[in-house]
Amino acid sequence: MGSTTIPAGTKWWSGGKSPFNVSYGKVMMWYFLMSDAFTFGAFLISYGTIRFSVNHWADPNHVFNSFPFAGHANLPLAFVSLMTFILIFSSVTMVLAVHEGHLMNRKGVEKYMILTIIGGLAFLGCQAWEWTHLLTGEHVALLTDGTLGVIPTTVTANPWGDNLTSAETLSALQKSSHQQLVAIASTLHHGAETAHHNLNALTNQELISQISASGLHATHSGPIAFGGYFFGITGFHGFHVFSGVIINIVMYIKTKLGHFDQRGHYEMIEKAGLYWHFVDLVWVFVFLCFYLV
């Protein structure tokens, strides 16, 4: 694996030099990242265990099928592909910054650090949009009391169960309160204010027949654990992206001030790069576990 050729008979463990041929700081960054890999691994394996232990899990192609400014178009995998490519590309600009650092080219490091920071911010923006979209979503689902309600995807609500049959939908509608029926009917009008006032004046039976005529797609509630795992793990990853962007900004400023030129090496850029690539590495697995399978 190693491409460095080492003369035979090098005494690695006799003191005075790093037995791994790596500086102390870089060794410790690697061990920190290894421990962080265990943390993320434990989260993802816990998620997998719960997912394997239930009969139904939310289908990612239904949960993540929207794209900014695309309205209600059904676009599974599209937005998360964009996020993945943003992160891969910012990983490339980071490794190019490290490369320029090896060549002691300050201007090159500055250019690629800026591009990496922009990539990180773009990813965080995408994640903010996705979270907002889920947390403010309006989905008609069967609640535990047997009525139908309009719920978003949060850590305590999950509307992504199996579809209800039309008979099940009808019987749940009949148990639902006037307020719930108005809320369901207004999702069909996409929340127009005047429509909402008119709906309030209708009787329950009128509302039910209007909702039934619209061909409402109601679902069972899904496992609550979905939201907790999704927001927990993508949130923990997003926090890593956020701290990575902060570290990269600090590295950019230090490069700009010429600190690394004075020091005679750009090893700090390498260490920040290790952290940034790790963030990309974790996303590869988050992408697999939450969106692809």
């Binding site: 791994f20 041929n21 790596v22 590495l281 590869v284």
Partner: peptide, 20 residues
């Protein structure tokens, strides 16, 4: 993908075997 990121982008492939 993880192998390529770790080995090339993180340069672990360039380190000596003991460290890997």
């Amino acid at each position: 993908k993880a192998y390529y990121i770790v080995s090339v982008f993180m340069h672990l492939g360039d380190e000596i075997r003991n460290f890997i």
